[in-house]
């Protein structure tokens, strides 16, 4: 077994890079002999430790309860085989290569736009996760109040996001932002895995959305998930050529669920999995609501010079199968 420490996922104001795979929303991965292998926990339940350090507004016990609630939210996703187990409190910091997954606070005033971060030690042959650590930046004000607290970030919301990374999910682009002095502000998001958090005081990100469940199911879905859900594959093209890094959204008007994905190769091909069977409408847009580096390591190659566009047919997703050959034609801005 070979090991590699892979520091990934940050929340708050953007970061993260890495990985891509063929399906849906981004999944984290690591390169092995030039090939990307998706990160995945081979052994369940995921055993994790929680640091016994208090920070203003959050005791170690509250941190443990909050992290357990966030794990439970992911574990409860339908038809997804995920489970977790609290292994105890620890003095160890939430980083490093020590065979233990540790979650806790770390003071990182230098990371003034980062609320949390997830790092991994992976088996670089199989892609299996050996351990994963999450730190929440103690330089920010935190809250575990049920209804949130003005001026303080909701720990459960950020923990839910970081645990999504811990499971192997990358960032979703299902969100809208506006540029303001000092950075981007989120207007709305429909995925816990959107890279920029809601404002302090908000508890709106404590529950999983369809996009998150689809992503989790793509990695850890049971056979029931795979036979009950379907997928869409196709291309995004501009003047006949593939568009790399386009954000695709599949929307089921019947259920109101939205699931996002990306074109991940030069030919503009994409696959969105974990979709409800039945009619879906599909939309493509440029990746312009967060730093591209939040999503891809190949940010320089991503094409954002096109107008958002709908696919001009309704796509009927088969149960347990794939609706293929969807070509969304976009034009330059």
């Amino acid at each position: 077994m070979r090991r590699a420490l892979v520091a990934i996922a940050l929340c708050a104001a953007a970061l993260l890079a890495l990985a891509s795979s063929a399906d849906a929303y981004l999944k984290l991965g690591t390169r092995v002999n030039g090939r990307i292998i998706g990160l995945k926990w081979a052994q369940l339940p995921i055993r994790y430790f929680v640091t016994n350090r208090d920070v203003p507004g959050v005791s170690a016990a509250q941190l443990q309860q909050t992290v357990a609630a966030a794990f439970s939210t992911w574990d409860s996703a339908p038809d997804v085989a995920l489970s977790s187990q609290f292994a105890g409190f620890t003095e160890a910091p939430p980083l490093g290569n020590d065979n233990a997954s540790v979650i806790g606070f770390l003071s990182r005033p230098d990371l003034d736009r980062v609320l949390g971060s997830t790092s991994f030690t992976v088996d670089t042959v199989s892609g299996d996760v050996i351990e994963s650590d999450i730190f929440f930046n103690a330089s920010f004000p935190w809250s575990v109040a049920d209804a949130g607290e003005g001026g303080r970030y909701d720990l459960q919301s950020i923990a839910l996001h970081e645990i999504g990374h811990l499971h192997g999910l990358g960032h979703s682009a299902l969100g809208e932002t506006e540029l303001r002095a000092g950075g981007r502000r989120v207007l709305a998001a429909e995925s816990i895995m959107f890279p920029i958090s809601f404002s302090p005081g908000s508890t709106n990100a404590r529950t999983l959305r369809a996009d998150d469940i689809a992503g989790s199911g793509d990695i850890y879905g049971t056979s029931a998930f795979r036979t009950s859900q379907g997928s869409i594959s196709g291309r995004v093209t501009k003047n006949g050529a593939g568009v790399l890094g386009a954000h695709i959204v599949a929307f089921s008007p019947a259920s109101g669920k939205m699931v996002g994905g990306f074109t991940l190769s030069d030919d503009g091909s994409f696959v969105i999995a974990g979709l409800d069977p039945g009619p879906q409408v599909v939309r493509a847009e440029p990746l312009d609501d967060a730093d591209i580096e939040s999503f891809f390591e190949f940010a320089a190659s991503v094409d954002v010079d096109f107008k958002p566009a709908f696919y001009n047919r309704v796509v009927v997703v088969p149960r347990g199968g794939t609706a293929q050959n969807v070509e969304i034609k976009v034009s330059a801005k």
Binding site: L187, E190, N204
Partner: peptide, 13 residues
Amino acid sequence: GAAQATETSNPTA
């Protein structure tokens, strides 16, 4: 039928 594709708003927005 009609439907809206919606996203959860940031409370400050």
